[in-house]
Design a binder for these strands. Structure first.
Lengths: 126, 126
DNA sequence: GATATGGGTTTCCTTTTGGAAAGTAGTTTC
DNA sequence: GAAACTACTTTCCAAAAGGAAACCCATATC
């Protein structure tokens, strides 16, 4: 019999575990969310800062992604009393609880990247 | 100055870290991949088994998702010498290295779910 | 009043994703 | 040779995602 993957003593296909994973994926989906979170980790940013730093994103997508991140409590939005008005975005404490996931994804992705490279170079040696 | 999230001594927005996270997300994207992986963790499965167990998936999507998982080395495909021909899908050893990510995502998702529930019930108490 | 900056929203369009149903192909069963 | 089973692939369509450009509102500048 094939061995199974267990998470907290439950097999991974336990429906509640799969649902939980889907919930997490839903919050991080879209083309830009992780890049935005990464950008904000470097410090609080205003809308235009983000648009400049997140290469390629348009105002519409930036606005939409920020709204979703805010609704989910991962990013905060603060209107500053400046002239003209500026808006500051920041990672929340809750957003920082994503760190373990991001760490594991970064680790795995780097490992995967070097594995892919190796198989391109050495897959058919000689 | 706002504190930053660090992963292995690098700030999360380090481009290579973000790229690695994107790589990982790309492999797990789509509506069904995680469910398929979860299903296969319960044991090897044939095409029709998967179509029965992954509720709601159609043959086209199942085929496509399995191909992508196979290309990325997460799932193996074995044609068995039966009549009629059957095909067995299984998680690879490499696919099992996703476990830490899946564990963190399951943990976070469950925490998130209970937090959302709590805020629905107790957000405005009394 | 024309222009610029900040922070968006709206419109229109294309691309991508995903689903239902039918078709393909090999083999066995009747 | 018609039907059924496994394992897909193809076609056709609808919905969602995403992008470019224009537009809106406020303030300030020239």
């Amino acid at each position: 019999m094939k061995k199974k993957i267990f998470i907290d003593n439950k097999p991974l296909n336990c429906p509640s575990q799969l649902k939980a994973i889907h919930d997490t994926m839903d919050l991080l989906n879209g083309k830009w969310k992780i890049t935005i979170i990464g950008c904000l980790n470097f410090g609080n940013k205003r809308f235009m800062d983000l648009q400049r730093e997140v290469t390629g994103i348009g105002a519409k997508m930036l606005s939409k992604e920020l709204q979703e991140l805010e609704i989910n409590g991962l990013v905060s939005r603060t209107v500053l009393n400046t002239k003209p008005v500026t808006v500051e975005y920041a990672i929340t404490a809750y957003g920082e609880t994503l760190r373990p996931i991001l760490r594991e994804m970064a680790n795995w992705g780097q490992h995967h990247r070097s594995k892919v490279k190796a198989s391109l170079n050495g897959g058919k040696p000689g």
